[in-house]
């Protein structure tokens, strides 16, 4: 078992609880012991980085410090946006000793352990796409996906900027396809799989966001996908919950089920309904379940 500090982030704590339960249930099957961080806040989602950049750095340093205090080497995330925000802050702190000293002084002043020993921020996707996690995933996915056609949707902030993320080629990613195949599914290819879901501006600029959102859903639909899978709960929220707005705007009802990565692998690994919590989705996942139960 590899011990990792587990940072849920806001969505998996609140509106996407199904992501948390599926991840927690799946973790031991893929060799991960999750130590859940409690004394942590939101990473700022890029918004605090923009509104109060120095505060952004401090709250992320606090998350990194609490992860390091657990004595682990890895801080595991389940969200693209958390991954980028934490990795960016980690990079800033590691590159500039003077900055790190000031931030640490501030952390200590409010009773937080200083961030001294480095941890690496890694997304759950990366843990199961290679190495021991991948070996175990192949065994764990014993129920298989029976050739289910799955459209991988990466989203942006797990690929770009690659100087901060850097796990795979941002233009030719392979990790989700590899996992889909290992689970017995058939990856569906389409150009918009690395593009934006529109979520960051879905409230402030809904029309622009919907014009982005329709691309991956439409392309996956036309490529014959049974469902889409994403490693990001924000992409999930816009693909799943805002699909009804696409219907309203364009008249097209794609009825495309959207699965969190942990749910897709979870289905192949035979997780219970109470762990997958598909009822929490806006677009019904029933057609997928029916296809698999035949």
């Amino acid at each position: 078992m590899k011990k990792v500090a587990y940072y849920k982030g806001c969505l998996a704590s609140l509106s996407a609880k199904e992501l948390d339960t599926a991840t927690q249930a799946l973790a031991p099957k893929v060799g991960l012991e999750l130590i859940e961080l409690e004394s942590v806040t939101c990473c700022g989602a890029g918004d605090i980085h923009e509104a109060e950049p120095d505060y952004y750095l401090h709250i992320n340093a606090r998350i990194l410090a609490y992860a390091a205090a657990e004595g682990v080497d890895t801080l595991m995330t389940v969200c693209n946006v958390c991954t980028l925000n934490l990795r960016q802050a980690n990079w800033q702190l590691q590159i500039d000793a003077e900055l790190r000293a000031r931030v640490n002084e501030n952390l200590v002043a409010v009773g937080v352990p200083p961030y001294e020993r480095n941890v690496e921020v890694r997304h759950f996707l990366w843990e199961i796409a290679e190495g021991e996690g991948y070996e175990l995933l192949q065994k764990a996915a014993h129920k298989g996906l029976k050739g289910l056609k799955v459209a991988p949707f990466y989203g942006c902030q797990i690929l770009r900027p690659s100087k901060i993320l850097g796990f795979e080629d941002p233009d030719r990613p392979w990790s989700l396809e590899r996992i889909i195949t290992a689970c017995g599914g058939e990856p569906v290819d389409y150009p918009a799989k690395i593009k934006c879901c529109g979520f960051p501006i879905i409230q402030a600029r809904e029309d622009v966001a919907l014009a982005e959102l329709i691309q991956p859903i439409e392309q996956a639909y036309e490529a014959g996908a049974d469902c889409m899978v994403t490693p990001c709960p924000l992409c999930h929220l816009s693909l799943d919950a805002w699909q009804s707005k696409l219907k309203k705007q364009t008249g097209r009802d794609f009825k495309m089920p959207i699965l969190h990565l942990a749910q897709l692998v979870g289905v192949a690994a035979g997780l219970a309904d109470s762990e997958l919590k598909f009822k929490r989705h806006v677009v019904s996942v029933k057609p997928v379940i029916e296809k698999l139960s035949v």
Binding site: L14, T41, C42, G44, D47, I48, A51
Partner: peptide, 15 residues
């Protein structure tokens, strides 16, 4: 939108 994240983080921690 951006400001609300700051308010959230400093009041309840989570968004």
């Amino acid at each position: 939108h951006a400001k609300w994240f700051v308010t959230s983080a400093r009041t309840t921690g989570w968004l």
